[in-house]
Design a binder for these strands. Structure first.
Length: 422
RNA sequence: GGAGAGAUGCCGGAGUGGUUGAACGGGGCGGUCUCGAAAACCGUUGUAUCCGUAAGGGUACCCAGGGUUCGAAUCCCUGUCUCUCCGCCA
């Protein structure tokens, strides 16, 4: 959520910047500002009324002590009157306050100045490419390989649950476990503190990181308990610090977490969802950082470099995209996507998304820190996938298939798998 | 799932209707003393929001949300969480 004070002081700037996200904020901003103005007016009235009430209440207490009962009764009446008035003022106050935040919450985060203009994924800016993307003939897509080698059974998964919930078998199951450990160990070396958090969160948490109210149709909802299956570990991990005021010396906070992720992916279809390309449940290791505002863009670079190092260790060809205004998420100020080239399908697959949310999430969740002068400020939150497993596996299978129909395991993973070929 | 107890500031812990934003102790910060430090002593120490250029002032907040009352941390209702006992259980 954009900070109200900031919007109040820079309404034109906000409107201008949100155009990059193809969002026409003009009407919203006008409404917010007028609601906010009303709110403040009523708040002043209400506060003055309360002040008067408090004064009278104290006097009544005093009069009672002195035994001046009838005088107290007169004051009581006056207090009751004030209370009646307060009720009306309060109604107006609450109405405007609610309207302010309910409208404010609809505004997406202000994009960083480097975010390119654009309508869709087509307009993302490719900032870096590395690795060999030449295709040799007869490379199979991973779903064929999985069937041939009995590695993943999509049909049993569909029988157990539904489509998009595959069953991993034998060496594939072990490979997954190996990759998770490989990612976690690397993150630990990088200084991230590992956390294991719940896979279901309450409404408040989902709201704080911005999944609600924006993307509620993308989450599985356990209605009976009003809980949500996490679409990413970002949600529980960032929410650890919800409503906290951290000390300057605690920063930056660096966490990594493995979790299963659940996404309804409503409305997707076609070859995009074939095989491992898009699942309802998948595994991911996530990295999360919480930093002082002035450090967050350096941190974003650092996280980018880290994800790059992982892809190099996995020997996968990859590229980095700077998401354009049309493709960047509601909550993000700047996002880099990492895509690996999967030779069997001959297409790029997104395996990581590294974002700086600046204070957008922090403002929602009241995540602040106290500087050395004792002043509190909102923090910046960042996160990135490091990495999401299914498409990594798809690329490993497709790119590392040998002419004998085996799959070569990259060297860095071999200590974790215990085998070098599938 | 059943029965009971509880939730107070950075921490411990008082407070059961009237100058209580909150005693007392600890911690933190500032100061006096000291060459320096410790000890001792003095002072200070929450968040949000509103008015104000500022100084300053108002309001709200003692788990959350409602209610009673002129007035609530204190009484009532609902919810959440924690602890103890019983049941069940990886």
């Amino acid at each position: 959520m954009i900070h109200l004070n900031f919007l109040r002081e820079n309404p034109d700037y906000v409107i201008e910047r949100l155009k990059i996200k193809n969002f026409d904020a003009y009407e919203y901003v006008q409404h917010i500002l007028s609601y906010d103005k009303q709110r403040r007016k009523f708040q002043k009235q209400l506060d003055d009324n309360f002040a008067e009430q408090n004064k009278i209440a104290k006097e009544i207490g005093k009069l009672y002590k002195e035994g001046k009962k009838s005088e107290a009764e007169t004051l009581k009446e006056k207090a009751s009157q004030l209370k009646e008035e307060a009720k009306k003022i309060e109604e107006n106050f609450t109405l405007n306050e609610k309207a302010t935040t309910e409208t404010l919450i609809l505004l997406p985060n202000i994009p960083h100045e480097s975010v390119p203009q654009g309508k869709s994924a087509e307009d993302n800016e490719i900032v870096f490419t590395e690795g060999d993307t030449t295709i040799s003939p007869n490379l199979l897509p991973h779903w064929d390989l999985c069937e041939k080698l009995s590695l993943i059974d999509f049909e049993i998964g569909a029988k157990l649950t539904g489509s998009g919930f595959p069953v991993y078998i034998g060496k594939m199951a072990k490979l997954q476990r190996a990759i998770i450990n490989f990612f976690l160990d690397n993150a630990l070396t990088e200084g991230y503190i590992e956390v294991q958090t719940p896979y279901v969160v309450n409404e408040e948490s989902a709201y704080a990181t911005g999944q609600l109210p924006d993307k509620d149709s993308q989450m599985y909802h356990v209605e009976k308990d009003n809980l949500f299956l996490i679409p990413t570990a970002e949600v529980p991990v960032t929410n650890i610090y919800r409503n906290n005021i951290l000390k300057a010396e605690e920063l930056p906070i660096k966490h990594c977490a493995y979790s299963a992720c659940f996404r309804r992916e409503a409305g997707s279809y076609g070859k995009d969802v074939r095989g491992l390309n898009r699942l309802h449940q998948f595994d991911k290791v996530e990295i999360v950082q919480i930093t002082k505002p002035e450090d967050s863009y350096d941190t974003l670079e650092e996280m980018k470099t880290y994800v790059t190092s992982l892809l190099r260790k996995l020997e996968l060809p990859f590229r980095i995209l700077r998401l354009c205004g049309g493709d960047i998420s509601f909550t993000s100020a700047l996002t880099f996507d990492f895509e690996v080239f999967s030779k069997g399908q001959q297409r790029w697959l997104e395996v990581s998304s590294v974002s700086n949310f600046e204070n957008f999430q922090a403002n929602r969740m009241k995540l602040r820190y106290k500087d050395n002068n004792g002043k509190t400020h909102l923090l910046h939150t960042l996160n990135g996938s490091a990495l999401a497993l299914p498409r990594i596996i798809a690329a490993l299978l497709e790119n590392n298939q040998t002419t004998e129909g085996k799959i070569h395991i990259p060297k860095s993973l071999q200590p974790y798998t215990g085998f070098d070929y599938i």
